[in-house]
Design a protein around this nucleic acid. Structure first.
Length: 127
RNA sequence: GCGGAGGGCUGGAUGGCCGCGGGCGGGCAACCGUUCGAGGAAAGUCCGGACUCCACAAGGCCACGGUGCCGGGUAACACCCGGGCGGAGCAAUCCGACGGAAAGCGCCACAGAAAUGAAACCGCCGUGCCCCUCGGGGCGCGGUAAGGGUGAAACGGUGGGGUAAGAGCCCACCGCGCGACGGGUAACCGGAGCGGCACGGCAAGCCCCACCGGGAGCAAUGCCAAAUAGGGAUGUCGCGGGGGCAACCCCGGGGUUUGGCUUUUGCCCCAGACAUCCGGGUUGGCAGCUUGAGGCGCGCGGGCAACCACGCGUCCAGAGGAAUGGUCAUCCAGAGGGGGCAACCCCUUGGACAAAAUCCGGCUUACAGGCCCUCCGCGCAU
């Protein structure tokens, strides 16, 4: 874990944008996926020709299976927070990520554990 | 103090660190500063509207749907307020598909002799004949709705007169129906008098009556841009195309009907090129988008009230895969455990329902805990 900074020229910028178009979500859903206790991670390397505001993009999905509107909002906010904490360090440019909430687990799982899960999953994905 | 009825309010607090959306200001920009940022139900999407687009002369009729005691409030309503009637409760108060059953159709099971302008099964009474152990019994004819029995419901109830036995047959009171007249805006209420007394229930079966109602919805709708496919209408060009019709001409055949080829002209159809206009779909952006039958606060006035009028002040979310948060600590309620006679202390746990999506007015449903007001009954004291 010593060389934790990527040797590439373009280091993680720290800035990322949020996916808003349905098509982006559908493309990400067909790519790789990593199941975790509190949520599901989907990741996809974009085609270089696709336009993108920032190098790293992320989206959040909480279907009705997660619960009512209050439960979905809370799950989505917690996912947003861990993404904000982890992606600037472990996200890789050119990739789209989608985090999918689970019923109960996304709202109740310890916050620090969720951050660690996401970081570990990203490193495993980009190994 | 105990039990109960009605109504209103609230829906954790403070701080640290890190963040999000909109407006405004600055900046070419990145960004910086500043300010605002969920609910009483934002929910269900059940009613009523505003606002858009489509359809449509007014109006009438038919069909369908809705509403359904009366009056008021309101932009409107199935909502709200007040009143009437019926029911529940000692009461406060609560509940009510609460128009019409003499417009018509339909239904009223089971039981019962008979279920609607109904009905003699037992019984009671009179009478004819027969039997008789002289108590009565049997068969028949007739009278009778007082009694028994069935039922949710049986031509009103009690008492008296009357009678062969009975019966509103007659009488008194109660009930019921009609009802002069009076009160009330009305629903409705009171009721002189009259009638011996029936006009059973269901309209949440159809129906009748009165009133109301076009359809679809902000994913409405309007605008802009791109790219793709290429629909419709009109006009022009070209006559070099293909086809059809008519006239004329030529040829062949012929008794006649008639057949064929070709040129030109006219007209029509199809295809072609160009121009203009209209329409449909996809993607993205902008508008609609939050100032409105507005809300809130204060004051004052009208009204029993719902509510309304006036004056002043204020503006209070506007996203669009959707912001209003994440995390930690302390405190405040609550629950559990331990210590202490007690005040109290310590530890653990832990915060209802539910999040705007064009906007209003309602209804319905969900809701941990806490607070307040008014009223009723009982008990105690005075």
């Amino acid at each position: 874990m010593v060389p934790d900074t990527p040797p590439l020229g373009e280091s993680p910028t720290g800035a990322f944008s949020v996916l808003r178009k349905r098509a982006d979500f559908l493309r990400a859903a067909r790519a790789q996926r990593v199941p975790l206790p509190a949520f599901l991670l989907q990741a996809r390397l974009r085609d270089p020709s696709e336009p993108s505001e920032t190098a790293v993009r992320v989206g959040f999905t909480c279907s009705k299976k997660v619960g009512n509107a209050v439960a979905r909002n809370r799950a989505k906010r917690r996912l947003r927070e861990i993404a904000r904490a982890v992606l600037p360090v472990d996200g890789r440019p050119g990739w789209d990520y989608v985090l999918i909430g689970r019923a109960d687990a996304t709202a109740d799982h310890p916050f620090e554990a969720m951050k660690a899960d996401l970081a570990r999953a990203l490193r495993k994905l980009h190994k």
